[in-house]
């Protein structure tokens, strides 16, 4: 995810806007990732549903935390966004293919 030439957008340059966008991304994006990735784990882990769900919930919180850290670590807003959007989209596609009902 570390680009050699960071892709700065005009939004990056406005300090308060940059921070605000990251906060929104952190709040919503991390939660979306926790829910989507957690659900994929809960459905796909090959163990009894109870154990898979426990693993999924615990890992879901870890995913949420890592997502928050990523949003504020990423050099640019685009990087922060892509880092959240890629796993979330992938998980959503898997869930759709599995026909999961959340």
């Amino acid at each position: 995810m570390i680009a050699t030439r960071p892709l700065y957008t005009p939004l990056d340059r406005i300090g308060w806007l940059n921070t605000t966008i990251r906060c929104v991304l952190a709040l919503l994006g991390s939660y979306a990732n926790a829910v989507l990735l957690g659900s994929v784990i809960a459905i796909t882990l090959s163990m009894p549903a109870k154990d898979a769900t426990m693993s999924a919930i615990m890992l879901g919180f870890v995913v949420q935390l890592l997502a928050v850290i990523w949003v504020f670590y990423a050099r640019t807003l685009i990087g922060a966004f892509v880092g959240l959007a890629l796993p979330a989209t992938a998980a959503a596609v898997v869930l759709h293919l599995l026909g999961a009902s959340l």
């Binding site: 926790a34 829910v35 549903a49 109870k50 879901g60």
Partner: peptide, 21 residues
């Protein structure tokens, strides 16, 4: 916090997990 994850393996019903648990 994560009712959707709790229900994912139980056809979307988190209470299914609680019963099982």
């Amino acid at each position: 916090l994560l009712p959707m994850v709790a229900g994912a393996a139980y056809n979307g019903d988190p209470r299914g997990f609680l019963r099982d648990y």
